[in-house]
Design a protein around this nucleic acid. Sequence first.
DNA 1: CCAACAGCTTCCCGCCGCTGGAAGGTCAAC
DNA 2: GTTGACCTTCCAGCGGCGGGAAGCTGTTGG
Lengths: 130, 130
Amino acid sequence: MRIGELADHVGVNPKTVRYYESIGLLPQPERLPSGYRDYTDDDLDRLRFVRTAQRLGLSLAEISEILRLRERGERPCEYVLEAVDRQLADLDRRLAEMAELRRELVGLKRTAADLPSDAGCYCDLIEHRR
Amino acid sequence: MRIGELADHVGVNPKTVRYYESIGLLPQPERLPSGYRDYTDDDLDRLRFVRTAQRLGLSLAEISEILRLRERGERPCEYVLEAVDRQLADLDRRLAEMAELRRELVGLKRTAADLPSDAGCYCDLIEHRR
DNA sequence: CCAACAGCTTCCCGCCGCTGGAAGGTCAAC
DNA sequence: GTTGACCTTCCAGCGGCGGGAAGCTGTTGG
């Protein structure tokens, strides 16, 4: 199948597929006589795997590493679990940050109504938000 | 004051200050005879404002717009509130996504223990996580 | 008096994960 | 035969910096 079809199946931009190839995440596919890339179902599986792992928060570098381990016949699960742990820790940190940020934003909106008029600052809303 | 001192006061890298200047977020400061940038307390205020707004989740482009409104003598608060609303909506969307992701990751870890041995897939952990 | 060192200058490049656009080739349908 | 959809390569940019090179300035110590 050609690149557009492959991309459609997985819901990505053909550019993304070429990008993945360029960084070694997808292998170089066969070419049709026209020069068009010709993909197999294996490529489809691999691309789907990449997107799933990515949705779980793994970076393309981590996914690369997983696929490389896999190609060397090693089970990548240990590495995956480490990556997942990192991702979980990061997630929790960012969730906390965002919750705090949310509180600040809501507070800012609440105080927006009863602000004094224009003073010599950049924005009363932001600077006087205590 | 010179760039290092300014940067230290606000806790940023001098590179960041020069970057802000390059995109027009900070004005071009006076120069000492040596060619070194020479900042005033106003610059310090402005830089602090930038970092505060940034911490609230506004992009540098949004902050630029706020400062530009300000310079034209308009109160940017309406614009700020719009930006804050956008940021809040975005935050809530991402919080929900991350919570869902977190559930998936925790589920993945729980099922990690009782997986069958190596099959012909990229990673049992990720592919067989239902 | 000179050397060392910190700090400053400009410039360019890289990060991540793409996406857009230019300039051109290929193929099927009308 | 020509339109249009699709493909090719290459280059460039997004945001928000940070690293490093190559070269100043300015202070301190021996």
